[in-house]
Write a protein that binds this DNA or RNA. Structure first.
Length: 212
DNA sequence: TATATGATTGCCT
DNA sequence: GGCAATCATATAG
């Protein structure tokens, strides 16, 4: 199966639009071993420059709205369509897509996908997964299943080997929203989008529903 | 150099 | 649902 990558223009738009539109789209990776891994995005979250939960938040000029070219992460937020891969809690890598026109900052975190192709390799990478639905139902799990880590940071997601592609057929199922998962700041923003009822959506609880 | 902390996962009760 | 794991990065001293 071959897929065609989305153009940069798809990502050079408001982050919330990109996050919502990305549902149903495909994440494709031509693995160095020769096989192809692919899955349909079923859950994503938006992170914008006007957002305390956004990593380079402090690098955004509050008056102009433009990102200042300083700091380590800021460098990767000036070109839409690239991968921002971040490490949290030990060895968990999270995959983001950089959004917004050049000069502005934003990113979409890909939180869960439904595997379509390359299941055997995903099972090899994810020895802890008891069932197939545990292969990719979380942001750290899907990077593990695909074999992605910090070495893929900064890659363009608009060309092989790693890219996003349009779905074979348009999405007809309803898209639901909630607050984002696992945050300590910006928990009030309903910027998580997911496909209601899909078995591969991550099991986490939205931040604003958590007891403290 | 030293320490705090997080966009998580998986195993335990 | 509780909680430990023990990584990369930012920021402080």
């Amino acid at each position: 199966m071959t897929y065609s990558p989305l153009p940069i223009a798809f990502f050079a738009r408001p982050t919330l639009e990109v996050a919502r539109d990305l549902l149903g789209h495909l994440l494709v990776y031509h693995h160095p071993a020769g096989d192809t891994l692919a899955g349909q995005i079923v859950e994503a979250e938006a992170y914008t420059q006007n957002d305390p939960a956004f990593h380079p938040w402090k690098s955004v000029d509050r008056e102009t709205g433009l990102i200042k070219p300083e700091g380590r992460t800021a460098a990767f937020f000036d070109e839409p369509g690239r991968a921002y891969i971040y490490n949290v809690y030990y060895s968990n890598w999270l995959l983001n897509v950089v959004t917004e026109p050049e000069g502005y900052a934003g990113a979409v975190l890909i939180r869960a996908i439904e595997p379509l192709e390359g299941l055997d390799r995903m099972r090899m990478h994810r020895v802890a997964a008891r069932r197939d639905r545990d292969l990719t139902n979380g942001p750290g799990k899907l990077t593990q299943a695909f074999g992605l880590d910090g070495s893929h940071h900064g890659l363009p997601l608009t060309a092989p080997p790693l890219y996003l592609a349009a779905p074979p057929e348009p999405l007809t199922v309803p898209i639901a929203t909630s607050s984002r998962i696992g945050l300590t700041r910006g928990i009030d923003r309903p910027w998580r989008f997911f496909i209601q009822g899909n078995a591969y959506v991550s099991p986490g609880t939205p931040s604003d529903q958590r007891k403290r």
